[in-house]
Design a protein around this nucleic acid. Structure first.
Length: 205
DNA sequence: AAGTGGCT
DNA sequence: TTAG
């Protein structure tokens, strides 16, 4: 039961049900988090994000008081982000190909950790160089309600449930749409406890 | 500006 | 309860 609404998904959105190989990413995520720990980034204006973030790959998405950017260096450690494991690249490229984006080779993977109550306000992903490449999102742990709107922030939104192991590919016309995540509900996952992890793969540079 | 909370 |  993925759709809260019966209508077909917006053009450019592909939702793949639970991918059996997604659970294999968990120990790799732990290793990345040991090198570049998830942290609550500051946003322009001075607020703090409720989602804890880290990255792997050549580029990582970061925010601070001065704005958003991709950076080769983790500002917390002063070192490059951990390398992107081959299993990450393979899962993302395979999902993108199934959604019609052959040749997707991500250079950035943003790893988001949601505790109960954590949310992501409506936003566009617009810090990447080429919007022709999709964004591939892998969900692990607790279910989340994903919101997808239009190209203007005030456009009405629809809701999708992103369950453990689900992979969402966000490309074509959907690439520029506002999207977000409702506050995470409390719950328990056998491997992750009261947590949701989300990996978003991008071709940023 | 990917925040948050309060007001109308 | 939702929109702004």
């Amino acid at each position: 039961m993925n759709d809260l609404f019966p209508e077909p998904l917006p053009d450019g959105i592909t939702l793949l049900p639970r991918q059996a190989d997604a659970v294999a990413l968990l120990p790799l995520i732990d290793a990345i988090a040991a090198m570049s720990p998830p942290r609550h980034l500051t946003v322009p204006g001075g607020g703090s994000m409720s989602v804890a973030m880290t990255n792997c790959g050549m580029l990582g998405w970061v925010s601070d008081r001065s704005g958003y950017r991709y950076d080769r260096i983790d500002p917390l450690t002063g070192r490059p982000w951990p390398a992107m494991p081959a299993a990450f690249t393979e899962l993302a490229a395979g999902a993108a190909a199934q959604a019609g984006f052959a040749g997707f080779m991500p250079d950035a993977c943003l790893i988001n950790s949601y505790a109960p109550g954590a949310r992501m306000g409506l936003h566009q992903d617009r810090d990447e160089r080429d919007f022709a490449w999709p964004i591939v999102s892998v969900s692990l742990g607790l279910d989340a309600v994903f919101l997808i709107g239009g190209t203007r922030r005030a456009d009405p939104t629809r809701a999708l449930v992103l369950a453990d192991g689900a992979v969402l590919v966000f490309g074509g016309p959907a690439r520029r749409m506002y999207h977000g995540v409702r506050p995470l509900k409390a719950g328990h996952h056998p491997l992750l406890g009261a947590r949701r992890l989300n990996l978003t793969f991008r071709k940023a540079g």
